[in-house]
């Protein structure tokens, strides 16, 4: 079978089409759900928010997280971050929601203090370069804000205070009830003794008259 020019052109066309389809069907599209992460954390406590990553591509996507480095404020303790996953793989067309938690130290921090930083999710790639130059990598970033709120009292303290108050009230009630009950008894005993005395004196007077 002899290949003529038409055969070669059509083979080239088919090969180009297949190459195009292969390249375009195997792409990665890294994304994130929009919106800032603004944490309001009470001093001595913590706050959590979700950070959703999206793989809009046709192949699994591996990533790593870089936690925010917050600005420093004089005479304060910078809050610290933790995340449910520091790296992972998102399946094609999938989403992954990470839970970001910020801890607000109680040392030196005051309500109203505000810090900001950037949370990063970088796509892990095998990009290389032959010779000198710059390797490019991609990712998504999220502006993060942290505001200190006044500390929330522990509920245990409130419970203990309430119990103490109840005990005091009950104690007072008990004391007054006992007092009220005992007084009449005492008075009635005095009355009884008085009656007895009068009766005795009456008897004596009667016997004398007899």
């Amino acid at each position: 079978m002899n290949f003529n020019r038409i055969h070669l052109i059509s083979l080239f066309f088919i090969f180009s089409l297949l190459s195009f389809l292969f390249i375009n069907l195997n792409y990665a599209q890294f994304g994130e759900v929009a919106g800032q992460l603004n944490f309001n954390a009470s001093i001595g406590g913590s706050a959590s928010l979700p950070f959703t990553l999206i793989n809009g591509g046709s192949k699994p996507l591996s990533f790593k997280i870089i936690l925010p480095t917050l600005n420093t404020i004089p005479n304060s303790t910078t809050p610290t971050f933790s995340i449910s996953q520091m790296n992972g793989t998102i399946p094609s067309g999938g989403q992954l929601t990470l839970n970001v938690t910020v801890y607000m130290p109680s040392n030196k921090n005051k309500p109203g203090m505000h810090w900001s930083g950037i949370l990063q999710a970088i796509e892990l790639s095998n990009n290389t370069i032959s010779g000198s130059g710059a390797i490019l990598q991609q990712g998504v970033a999220k502006i993060v804000g942290v505001t200190a709120l006044k500390p929330v009292g522990l509920p245990i303290i409130y419970i203990v205070l309430i119990i103490l108050a109840i005990i005091i009230i009950l104690g007072l009630l008990y004391y007054f009830i006992i007092k009220k009950v005992k007084k009449p008894k005492f008075q009635s005993k005095i009355k009884q003794s008085k009656r007895k005395r009068t009766l005795n004196s009456n008897k004596k007077s009667r016997s004398k008259t007899k």
Binding site: F30, G31, V33, G133, L136, Q138
Partner: peptide
């Protein structure tokens, strides 16, 4: 939901051979 994606091209930049003190114009496209 609101979302944005990223896809950069190319994935590397080659400046070639450069002598000390020489500059490459700011025109390498990404």
């Amino acid at each position: 939901s609101s979302a944005c994606f990223i896809g950069i091209s190319p994935n590397s930049i080659t400046f070639g051979n450069m002598a000390p003190t020489s500059a490459y114009d700011t025109n390498v496209l990404v």
